[in-house]
Simulated scan of single mutants.
Amino acid sequence: MRFMVILKATKASEAGDMPSEALMTAMIKFNEDMVKAGVLLAADGLRPSSDGARVRFDGDRREVIDGPFAETRELVAGYWLIQVRSLDEAIEWMKRAPNPMEGEASEIEIRRMFEMDDFGEESLTAEARATVERMHAEVAAKS
Score class of each variant (00 low, 15 high):
Leu75Lys: 00
Ser106Val: 05
Phe69Ala: 12
Arg96Lys: 15
Pro48Lys: 07
Glu102Phe: 07
Val35Lys: 06
Leu87Asn: 11
Gly59His: 10
Ala130Asp: 13
Thr131Arg: 14
Thr131Gln: 14
Glu102Ile: 06
Ser123Asp: 11
Glu102Ala: 13
Glu109Pro: 13
Ala97Thr: 06
Gly52Glu: 00
Met18Leu: 14
Ile28Pro: 00
Ile65Val: 09
Leu46Asn: 01
Val35Ser: 03
Ala97Cys: 13
Leu87Met: 14
Gly59Phe: 06
Met34Pro: 07
Ala12Pro: 08
Gly38Thr: 04
Leu46Glu: 03
Asp117Met: 15
Glu133Arg: 07
Lys11Asn: 13
Ala140Trp: 14
Asn31Trp: 01
Leu75Ala: 03
Gly16Val: 07
Val84Arg: 04
Val35Pro: 01
Glu138Thr: 05
Phe114Gly: 11
Glu133Cys: 03
Arg96Gln: 15
Ala70Gln: 10
Ala26Val: 03
Ile28Ser: 06
Val64Asn: 04
Ser13Ala: 09
Asp60Glu: 15
Met94Phe: 07
Arg134His: 12
Pro68Tyr: 01
Arg85Cys: 03
Glu122Asn: 08
Met135Glu: 13
Glu14Lys: 09
Pro98Ser: 03
Glu21Gly: 06
Glu14Asp: 10
Ala130Met: 09
Phe69Asn: 14
Ile108Arg: 07
Leu46Lys: 03
Arg129Gln: 12
Phe119Gln: 11
His136Thr: 05
Glu14Ser: 11
Asp51Lys: 10
Gly67Val: 02
Lys29Thr: 13
Glu63Ser: 09
Ile82Gly: 09
Glu102Gln: 14
Ala137Ile: 07
Leu81Ile: 15
Pro48Arg: 08
Pro98Trp: 03
Asp88Thr: 04
Phe57Cys: 07
Val76Thr: 15
Leu87Tyr: 11
Arg111Thr: 10
Ile6Phe: 01
Asp17Leu: 11
Asp60Pro: 14
Pro100His: 09
Gly120Phe: 05
Val64Gln: 14
Glu32His: 14
Arg134Thr: 15
Lys8Cys: 02
Arg61Pro: 00
Gly38Ser: 02
Val84Gln: 04
Leu124Gln: 01
Met116Ser: 05
Ala105Pro: 07
Gly120Thr: 06
Ala126Ser: 11
Leu7Ala: 15
Glu138Val: 01
His136Phe: 10
Thr72Asn: 15
Glu107Gly: 04
Ile65Phe: 03
Glu74Phe: 06
Val84Ser: 04
Thr10Asn: 04
